[in-house]
Amino acid sequence: MTAPSIIVSETPLVLYTLRRADDALILGHRLSEWCGHAPMLEEDMALSNMALDLIGQARELYGYAAKVEGRGNDEDKLAYLRDVRQYRNLLLVERPNGDFAHTMVRQLFYAAFADLYWRGMMGSTDATLAAIAAKSEKESAYHLRHASEWVIRLGDGTDESHARVQVAVDDLWAYTGEMFGADDAERGLIDAGVAIDPTMLLPEWLSIVSHVAREATLTLPENDWMQQGGRDGRHSEHLGHLLSELQYMQRSFPGATW
């Protein structure tokens, strides 16, 4: 016996909120995979702190999505009872941890975006989203700082670390473009002042990331082909495995309370 997936009525605001909730949960989950396995104990602490921030953001966003949807779903149903095609996160955040360089570059790319994004969203006409943004902005500002410091150390560290972090930048670059996209469903929210236009964030994001790359003696790829699909549930093969682990209990014991 397994629990079937729920059906979510994805009105524009529900869909919009779910997408951000999924980003936070999936990245938080990925970071939590490091717990107990980091390069130094101090970094176990740091990675867990970032994971906890993101899981916290996800919970607030799911809670709000459930409330807006108004069909009796809750944070756990939304997290645990949607299948891979219903997940709306960016492809970037589901990338496997890889080595520490991959994890930190992924964190840099996402946090540099998230910090700008949440700062903008503090002015949302939606009071709940604005409040979540105010809290999340402080968290992502720290994530950005931590990831930047590490990318600089790895880039300007040893030959091996430089090579590894350059590979990570090259591997992950194609997943950054999706952060700045907005489809028709989001356009309406942007026009209403509920959401901000993510395309506007690109120049500043590029400037932050370029600055870190320069300090780290890294080269940003010139290839501007960007992978898309996560926002519409067209994911990489990695997400299904992540979900099968994440959702194992809720799927195996339908309706149980934990």
Binding site: D44, N49, L52, R59
Partner: peptide, 29 residues
């Protein structure tokens, strides 16, 4: 951290996941 860490990615609710991660992190501290 390892035996409990074994369940961080499979915790059955988001509340339990956050609590377990915070707890295992405490062990590290």
């Amino acid at each position: 951290m390892l035996p409990e860490g074994n369940w961080i990615t499979r915790a059955p609710s988001l509340r339990r996941k956050a609590a377990l991660l915070a707890k295992v992190q405490d062990e590290c501290g």
